[in-house]
Write a protein that binds this DNA or RNA. Structure first.
Lengths: 157, 157
DNA sequence: CTCCTTAATGAAAATGGTTTCCATTATTAA
DNA sequence: TTAATAATGGAAACCATTTTCATTAAGGAG
């Protein structure tokens, strides 16, 4: 079992309690799965992973919890254009690094990349600042994604 | 009636015919509406605009046509995260300029901006090139969008 | 520890944008 | 004009997500 868990298993408890949310079995189970899994899980993916150990956590609770987590900034809600939302821990005990996504429209594979992240982030921050001022917007999120065909899907046709 | 229509009303005919698509009343009506309207129309928006003049063009045809147009690169299919797709002419007779989008999550207003487009596009091209080579991807699309609250929605709460 | 308020829950039903089915119509090449 | 078949519309299906509502359980007060 890897070291590096910031504050033990309950690192999110504070954030939860601080906002008046109750700690429940379902919520802990969902966060547990999210922190054990590599990103990009759909609600159903999570349901399937949670269900064996906690058969009485319903899909509705998954959706509701993900909504809360997303609002708290604990998870990112992602949209890769395949009709279902995906979720990944914003920054878990594993200390995942900031990255963007490269989506294959052939097989829906998603590659996390961080190669040009610094330049991208710098430009994004500049742009956010400029746009925020010009249009009087309070920008609090951005999406940058590339779509294309991976080598496998590219060869196929 | 503004000048500037490149090749008259039928500028898309060639692209259509060249790909084996037939020219139908419905398709012409939809393209007509798209080129007369300012961007970001949903399928239903288009249906409502087309219906008075062509009451026998159904919503199904709207969806099917938009899919064709999107595949031909004549329209962009946009997703602003509100659960319905939006469409805008990629480059019509009006000669719309390339732009990105700034989305208010409060009122769903969308602002087209082109302020940092040059820098953004340059970085995107570099990144596409680098990522394409490193991951052996044929990248053919990207999304860059900012989300936030416009001045109105920001003040409200 | 027990009680009480009310947030949280699950199952089922509803929602709503989009797609599919299929019999009919219309386009276009010959 | 005709024949082949692409395109169509209306209804039904689809399916991820949300809502409803009666029940359960978290956690502060005592």
């Amino acid at each position: 079992m890897p070291r590096g868990n910031c504050q033990g298993q309950g690192w999110w408890h504070g954030k939860f309690r601080g906002c008046g949310y109750r700690l429940t079995t379902g919520r802990e189970a969902i966060l547990d799965i999210l922190s054990r899994s590599e990103g990009h899980l759909s609600a159903e993916d999570i349901y399937i992973k949670v269900h064996p150990r906690y058969p009485n956590v319903g899909l509705t609770t998954i959706y509701r919890t993900l909504d809360v987590l997303s609002n708290l900034g604990i998870v990112y809600k992602l949209d890769f254009g395949d009709g279902r939302a995906r979720y990944e821990l914003a920054e878990g005990p594993k200390g995942a690094h900031h990255h963007h996504h490269l989506v294959c429209t052939g097989c829906n594979r998603v590659i996390d990349y961080a190669d040009f992240i610094d330049e991208e982030v710098e430009l994004l921050q500049q742009t956010e600042k400029g746009l925020g001022k010009k249009y009087n917007f309070r920008i609090n999120n951005h999406v940058i994604q590339f779509y294309g065909l991976c080598d496998k899907c590219n060869g196929k046709k």
